[in-house]
Design a protein around this nucleic acid. Structure first.
Lengths: 364, 364
DNA sequence: TTGTACGCGTTATCAG
DNA sequence: CTGATAACGCGTACAA
């Protein structure tokens, strides 16, 4: 399966001497005929250096391939220019988009992303010790944190922005989120207004707050409207959960529901494919299917899914903004915590029969 | 679109004093009644400390929430325990999978990923200076590097593993890759053996070496087989490029080709959807479509795409292995460069009419 | 096994 | 504007 080529050439054409000493600001200073602190100043944006020394230093630095050592710098400045980004489900299609945007936004503020991934959201606790170690300037966490964990961020004075997790403890913690509960209500309300009565719900995993909120929003709204209780099953946010989920729901109800609300788009797509290709159902003729996130595939011609978009770019930018503000302001200033909530945006696809109503009549 | 809640509670219930001093190993030493170096030793895996002092130190450390400062440590050990991962196209669906796996593999070796992303692969040069700054222990680069850039890695003695880029300069550089040229040949050969004669190719962007190799592999094989020259168009590895590409090809040829080879799965899916939903073509009845990568959506029931899988997990593991070896061995040892090449795996989907041939008869 | 003393490479302070 | 000097927090010889 794999062949290993081993060319006769050896790694670098290195001088036979042992590990070369790093080039430091002292080397540059020596070569340029100035003091070490002069070199340091030349690499600090707003420093006061004469044009002539600046030129000499830069020439020497270029000749030696000198680059300031960020570790040494961060030791004294107390700034590493690194931001921890904690993400649980990279398989989720939604998170890669978010991560790409976060990385971009953080980079344009002169910082870099130190990435922390995990399989299960509950494992976040084990990552925290590493986060403290690496002396990051702040953290963007897309995972559920306990109150104790949040308290530890505060004790350590580490700026924290919670991304897309609605925490029980709303006070005092900065967060950027899309209103998932409201999204669930909105979707259920729209579908109910179009005449759907018997619902199925394929919810996300129980340990995901996002999944829970979406489900609760939908079920609460349905209850308010006096509709029969939906058949609810849970999945893992993946395609297979969508296909299995639909079968389960049909088994529970003894019939095909009018509509299935899925905890995210990937499950909705699985549900859709199962309905069309395995059960031979007409969607949306016999069954409406809807999801959340508006990931890229939901827009493909084969699906054209009815779903709710989370404004990923805006959310990533807001998170980066918020965090940058916390980091820069952080000298004894009193910073009030913010929650920036973004509204989900309804995507009127082709997988649900929807009455075209005036927007006002379906306030959730 | 966004509402900003500002609770009256202020950030942390912080003591009115200014920024608290960090807790260092000296603080722990003081509290435990030992020297600072004793504390240091307690946090070094294989050190010699008596059970009693170890216990006292650990207790004091726990009481103070002490965590060693990685920046200070890396200054003296010359190890940051960070690995740079450079990735260009996070939108590509294939790369998130690779990144997740890389992050996992690197984490289990006790290191973390410092992420560098960019829009265009040509921008990699601007990232390099940052990579030097951050004192990473090594780098995994999924982008095309010039010979000069590779040489700079060598001069700086920074372990480098090139991921999925076949470089012109093959000697002396460690790399993990899937044989894209061979993949192109294999796919073209299979389709030709099944009787397809007139091909279209929707290639990836010209600045992507992967795209170029896949295309060249296919066109070379077709030429060898004496088939008519394929209609070739280029796209951006995205869905829209697939839909537009098919139209262009049909316009160029004045007819629907027998088969279209697409530079990746997302373009193949776009091509497929265009053929079925916009042009009303029967796939694979009237037209065969194939791609590369076997990303998750290619396996969904609506597509079931004929494609070639890159063994992402194996490749990520190989890259992490290779890099870890370089990092650990790095004391004057002579390390020979390796290229670990993985074979693509044919996925016999349902979007191409393929003769069921004995595997031997279609050696490319 | 433990403590002392030094150095890693940089920025910050303060005279000149 | 420039140079000496003191941190930053830790690992590690070396001597005890």
């Amino acid at each position: 399966m794999t062949k290993t080529k081993t060319p006769s050439a050896v790694q670098p054409a290195s001088p036979p001497r042992a590990a070369a000493r790093r080039v430091t600001s002292y080397d540059v200073a020596m070569l340029a005929g100035v003091s070490q602190s002069a070199v340091s100043r030349c690499f600090k944006p707003g420093a006061s250096v004469s044009k002539s020394t600046y030129a000499r230093v830069m020439k020497a630095a270029a000749g030696l391939d000198y680059i300031p050592n960020a570790a040494a710098r961060s030791l004294i400045t107390r700034r590493s220019n690194m931001v921890a980004v904690v993400i649980s489900q990279m398989a989720n299609l939604y998170y890669p988009e978010a991560l790409a945007e976060l990385s971009h936004q953080i980079a344009r503020r002169g910082k870099r992303v130190l990435l922390f991934t995990m399989q299960h959201e509950a494992d976040v606790g084990r990552l925290l010790a590493d986060i403290w170690q690496y002396q990051v300037d702040g953290a963007i966490v897309a995972a559920a944190l306990t109150d104790a964990q949040i308290a530890e961020f505060e004790r350590r004075r580490l700026p924290l922005v919670v991304f897309n997790r609605n925490l029980r403890r709303t006070g005092g913690v900065n967060s950027v989120l899309c209103d998932q509960y409201e999204a669930g209500r909105l979707l259920a309300g729209r579908l109910a207004a179009a005449g759907h009565r018997q619902f199925g719900i394929i919810a996300g995993p129980a340990d995901s707050p996002v999944a829970t909120e979406r489900r609760n929003g939908a079920t609460d709204r349905l209850r308010e409207l006096g509709l029969p209780p939906p058949a609810v099953v849970t999945g893992q946010f993946d395609y297979a959960s969508g296909t299995h989920g639909l079968r389960e729901i049909i088994a529970q109800l003894g019939r095909v529901p009018d509509a299935v609300i899925c905890g995210n788009d990937v499950m909705a797509i699985g549900c859709l494919d199962c309905a069309r290709h395995e059960l031979g159902l007409d969607v949306p003729g016999q069954l409406s299917v809807a999801g959340f996130d508006a990931v890229e595939p939901s827009n493909w011609l084969s699906y054209n899914l009815t779903t709710l978009r989370q404004p990923v770019q805006h959310m990533a930018q807001a998170a980066a903004d918020l965090l940058a503000g916390l980091i820069d302001a952080r000298e004894g200033e009193l910073v009030t915590a913010q929650t920036r909530t973004f509204a989900p945006q309804f995507i009127d696809g082709a997988t649900a029969r929807l009455a075209s109503l005036a927007p006002d009549s379906l306030a959730a």
